[in-house]
Design a protein around this nucleic acid. Structure first.
Lengths: 242, 242
DNA sequence: GAGAAGGGTTCCTCTGTGCGGAATACTGCG
DNA sequence: CGCAGTATTCCGCACAGAGGAACCCTTCTC
């Protein structure tokens, strides 16, 4: 696979430069300019390279996406049995959530066996501020970092969604005081969720554990009970990491 | 470039999965198993994929490296004229430094024109705790994040290097109080440097600006003067970002 | 333990893809 | 505007990459 090899060499080269011309790459790979051009065009076609009006090529967003979209799979595997136990104990849906920039991604899920239940959303992405898991993770950050990550006003997904960063910062203060985060129909109408951050001893907050239920099944007292289950599971999990 | 296209599709697929088998990839790309195997083998050859004894393939470190080694080139360009002015004014070497994990990388430099001078190190990497720029950037982080990033004991580059994370955390406190960081022969014997973090209004601490000089030319009073030059340049720079 | 099923890896043949060269188009400088 | 350098497009051809087959490996079941 000589041409594939050259494409990967081109990608590595592009990653190490501010920008690259066809001639630069041709010299680097010892290939004809038309071959270098063809490689860069293909990288561009898949968004591994971008080109502006100066004719030079830069690393494109696909390269960044491949690297940063990888989940902490070892954590996912370690948490799985705890999630299954939680789902069995509470009879509600349990999710493991990761933070990527200002979004959360659903990494894994164990669905409730009840007839009326919240479905798992593994693979989905949502704004962090709209979810219990997202709030639990954001609460690990300093207010200045929260501001750096969000515009002043935030898009609403429901009538209950937080809509300003100032509100969010206040809410995260409450999360820290309470010891867990909640989402009361802020993301999807009819869904109530609680969440806690999973903090690895050397890697910091790597994910969040949440329990989601139909809102009609959860009042404040039950939310608190569900949260206690989460906190117990979290303690057992992180004790296994020492 | 059909084969290059398939290699890039393979890379994207690998980035979205925990692990991938030859059969998985063959089905995904609609190619023969031997073709899928050949693609994965080439990705593996360049470290874009890794394979363990289970025969399955995972994303390799090269993909991560391509994405994360990219410097903030727009910042580098914006800072350049300020660096040139600083170097002309102080007649010492000016560097722009970025933080990557627990290391700094020298992003750009303007060398002093004096006969005896500190050389520029653009492209070099060093432990952050041994450099003024690194310390300036680390001082923007919380102690718990510093601990997460460093082992208890730190390797010494000179007799003056900080050798424990506890010492480093104390030093970073002093950096924050003083308003700038210094490196008094902690990295290279005979080099004295001062540094300040360049803080972008929405992106946070994106780099550090430093002035490095032969130690025999810098006493405490001159270090403070050099630091004032840095702080003034930093203010002008960040005002241009509003 | 033996055998079956599924899948990974290696090898071979052949054809169509990717290479380099040439022509054309574009950009920046004097 | 003309020129030099470089990017982009197009074409012909040969060899690189595709698929198929054989062999090897792993896991599961009896």
């Amino acid at each position: 696979m000589e041409s594939v090899g050259n494409a990967l060499r081109a990608l590595l080269y592009l990653g190490a430069q501010e920008s690259v011309s066809v001639a630069d790459l041709g010299r680097h790979l010892q290939v004809a300019p038309s071959t270098a051009h063809r490689l860069l065009s293909t990288l561009k076609e898949f968004d591994f390279a971008r080109q502006d009006d100066s004719r030079r090529y830069r690393l494109g967003p696909a390269a960044h996406e491949v690297a940063t979209r990888q989940a902490p799979w070892d954590v996912v595997a370690a948490v799985r049995p705890h999630m299954e136990h939680l789902a069995a104990t509470t009879r509600e849906t349990v999710n493991l959530i990761g933070l990527q920039g200002a979004c959360v991604v659903f990494l894994d899920g164990v669905e409730s066996t009840q007839t009326v239940r919240v479905g798992v959303r593994t693979g989905d992405r949502l704004p962090a501020y709209t979810t219990a898991g997202g709030k639990a993770l954001l609460a690990q950050m300093r207010p200045k970092d929260i501001r750096a990550l969000h515009p002043r006003t935030l898009a609403a997904l429901t009538a209950a969604t937080i809509t300003t960063t100032d509100q969010l910062i206040k809410e995260l203060d409450a999360v820290r005081s309470r010891g867990y985060a909640s989402n009361i129909e802020e993301c999807v109408d009819g869904v109530y969720a609680v969440g806690v951050a999973v903090v690895h001893p050397t890697r910091g907050a790597v994910a969040a554990l949440t329990i989601s239920a139909p809102a009609h099944r959860v009042d404040e007292r039950r939310a608190d009970l569900l949260a206690q289950h989460l906190l117990h599971a979290n303690t057992r999990l992180t004790q296994g990491w020492r």
